[in-house]
Design a protein around this nucleic acid. Structure first.
Length: 630
RNA sequence: GCCCACGUAGCUCAGUCGGUAGAGCACACCCUUGGUAAGGGUGAGGUCACGGGUUCAAGUCCCGUCGUGGGCUCCA
């Protein structure tokens, strides 16, 4: 088997997760907050803040927590930081560390804290958050996290620097590794993550327990960049972006189109077996549809603006659901038809903010592996699980082992804004999903304030090569739209009932899935998904006719094959094919021509000479048909 | 959208103090007909992202626009 994306365990939201039987599970280990590396990173953030404050005495400090690979601290500074500033700050940090300054903790009252930080407006705001719960009963701690318990206010001091902080820290700066950290980059970040608040400057530092861990991390990061789908996508001619077309609007090249077609074939196979029916719907519709669906009130900022013709406003669809709802409602439905599963690879358009675009992973035009399942409430558990099982089957096919299922719930503060205003149904449907997941032993993490506007969902979170987190697949409950669309079915008592709806997209969008797969397989796709599956490499021009002959037989067997008839020598042809990660290289010369064989070279470098053409075809066809990874 | 950085040939990148552009790969043609990761030669290819400005002179300095990237916000 070829090497693929490494499956290293990692910290996510304070829990330690790792691949286990295809599912990320919570390990029985100490929480991040209690580890040595957490204290080191947290303490380094304080040391950095001291260095920054010495350099800019008028600096206003925000927050500075540890993260996955180090720490950051946000500052309001009189001017923009330069790379030279970072070097200087890092140098000063090393001096501070050498001083062996003790970290001392002090519990203080709110009044004392306000006095200590009287010239630090952000700290004063944090103290307010620690003291007084908001309207929903949450206190906000100094890392911006919500908590129900009123926290104890404490400060930590090292050398000349005192910071509002609950800790923990190392005992003294001498315990900080001077050679295992480095300031990494500076970026902008809104105060409190709120785009209406001031933009601060965030300095990120990398930090590990010792130097070799830092070096290993930097090396791994460099290797990850080699796997970046934006780089490989260009080199392997899968997609392109063109300025005149527009940002976030990918053009699929022939190789990418092959992959799309193979994925759709897979989806169709799976959905046929799972009882889905395929539908097709238009890309645009009248405004009325999206008013009724709730997209215009809740989602308009992500939609392309309307176009008006003959006094009627039309929108390009950001989701397929309203169209599918209209199909459900196009005639009277019986309970005998449920669950009714309508599937479509629908093309949607979302006006994502320009800064949010990211290669293929975040685009403005997308083809979704969408389906809407209409069902009675008592069918919910079974159907929701069937969808989860479908996900797991897909992940098995794609060798996806590193992911997290996330139950995304609403937050009371978003009711009537981000979320449909019906607290009872939120609570009820969230409990339903939680119960299904627990009863079926599917590990998940629960995160508030991440739901869709119409209901809770299970999101499957994955990571791009450079470590950015994305929702790949999603399985959503909708308790709102069926009612808005007056969707009903006649139950066994002859009474009309409103169905529930499940929105599901296990294969995400073509864009995000292929972007992810490029990185996941590092360009070495399974044979069935490879744009070119085999390449004929004639040793001299004399062997081209035989190569063409073999290619024809492969093509008749459904294998995508090319013939390299360039005037290069064989070594060069192999090198070129190797760089394209073509699974099968078939070298043919006098020997093979005479025997009716090929010299088979795999992209792993494995070599199988004298393979009869029929044997190769039989084997390759089986690998392709079974979608095996070889 | 916001903060910061970047934009030179299809790709990866040089280009000094401001003096009107270079390499490798890829591509085309010719020679070479070779047994498992780069054969040789010749050639074509650039309004230095776009638009202004400063200057005798701008790839180089300044401003704006567009695009890309690192983040923030947001998300399939």
């Amino acid at each position: 088997m070829e090497p693929r994306a490494t499956s290293t365990p990692r910290w996510v939201w304070g829990i330690f997760v790792f691949p286990m039987g295809g599912i990320m599970a919570e390990a029985n280990v100490v929480p991040y907050e209690e580890t040595k590396i957490y204290r080191i990173r947290h303490s380094l953030a304080h040391v950095m803040a001291q260095a920054v404050l010495e350099k800019f005495p008028e600096a206003k400090l925000a927050i500075g927590p540890p993260v996955d690979d180090g720490f950051y601290y946000d500052f309001d500074l009189p001017r923009t930081l330069t790379p030279e500033d970072l070097e200087e700050i890092e140098k000063r940090m090393k001096e501070i560390i050498k001083g062996n300054h003790e970290f001392t903790r002090k519990e203080v009252s709110a009044e004392e804290a306000r006095a200590i930080f009287s010239d630090q407006p952000y700290k004063l705001e944090l103290i307010d958050g620690l003291m007084e719960p908001d309207e929903f009963g949450y206190y906000i701690d100094e890392n911006g996290e919500e908590t129900k318990e009123p926290p104890t206010i404490s400060t930590y001091t090292q050398d000349t620097f005192e910071d509002l902080c609950r800790g923990p820290h190392v005992e003294h700066t001498g315990q900080l590794p001077r050679t295992a950290f480095q300031l990494d980059r500076v970026s902008g970040a809104y105060w409190r993550g709120d785009e209406s608040r001031p933009m601060l400057q965030r300095i990120y530092g990398l930090a590990f327990e010792d130097k070799k861990d830092l070096k290993a991390y930097l090396k791994q990061r460099e290797e990850a960049r080699q796997r970046d789908h934006r780089k490989l996508g260009r080199e392997l001619e899968i997609f392109t972006f063109e300025d005149e077309v527009g940002p976030g609007l990918p053009l699929w090249l022939p190789n990418g189109a092959v992959m799309i077609e193979e994925i759709e074939k897979l989806a169709k196979d799976m959905e046929d077996r799972a009882g889905y029916k395929r539908v097709k719907t238009p890309h645009v519709s009248k405004e009325d549809l999206f008013l009724r669906s709730g997209h215009l009130p809740y989602y308009e900022e992500s939609m392309y603006p309307p176009m008006e013709l003959e006094g009627i406003r039309y929108f390009v669809k950001p989701m397929n659901c309203p169209m599918h709802h209209k199909i459900f409602g196009s005639r009277l439905r019986s309970y005998r038809e449920l669950p009714l599963r309508l599937a479509e690879y629908g093309t949607c358009y979302r006006y994502e903010q320009s800064g949010e675009l990211f290669g293929l992973m975040r685009v403005r035009s997308m083809q979704m592996n969408d389906a809407h399942i209409y069902l009675a409430e008592d069918q919910f558990e079974q159907e929701f699980m069937a969808v989860i099982q479908l996900y797991l089957e897909y992940f098995r096919i794609f060798d996806i082992e590193q992911y997290i299922m996330r139950l995304s719930t609403h937050h009371p503060r978003g009711l009537g804004k981000k979320y449909v205003d019906n607290p009872e149904l939120w609570t009820k449907t969230e409990a339903m999903v939680r119960k299904v997941m627990q009863e079926n032993d599917i590990p998940f993490v629960e995160v508030a304030d991440e739901a869709a506007f119409y209901g809770p969902k299970i999101d499957v979170q994955v990571y791009s090569a450079i470590g950015r987190e994305f929702t790949l697949a999603t399985n959503q409950v909708d308790f709102s739209q069926p009612g808005s669309f007056d969707l009903t079915f006649v139950n066994s008592d002859g009474v009309e009932e409103t169905p529930l709806c499940i929105h599901r997209a296990p294969l995400s969008t073509h864009e995000r899935l292929i972007g992810f797969l490029i990185e996941h397989y590092a360009g070495k796709f399974p044979v069935w998904l490879s744009p070119v599956q085999a390449i004929m490499i004639p040793i001299t021009d004399d062997h081209i006719p035989y190569a063409l002959d073999v290619a024809t037989r492969l093509r008749e067997a459904g294998i995508r094959v090319e013939v390299d008839d360039s005037s290069e020598r064989m070594g060069k042809k192999i090198r070129t094919a190797q760089k394209r990660y073509i699974p099968y290289m078939l070298v043919v010369g006098d020997q093979e021509k005479e025997d009716g064989t090929v010299a088979l070279r795999l992209r792993s470098g494995d070599q199988r000479n004298d393979t009869p053409v029929d044997d190769f075809i039989a084997e390759a066809a089986a690998v392709i048909a079974e979608r095996r990874y070889e």
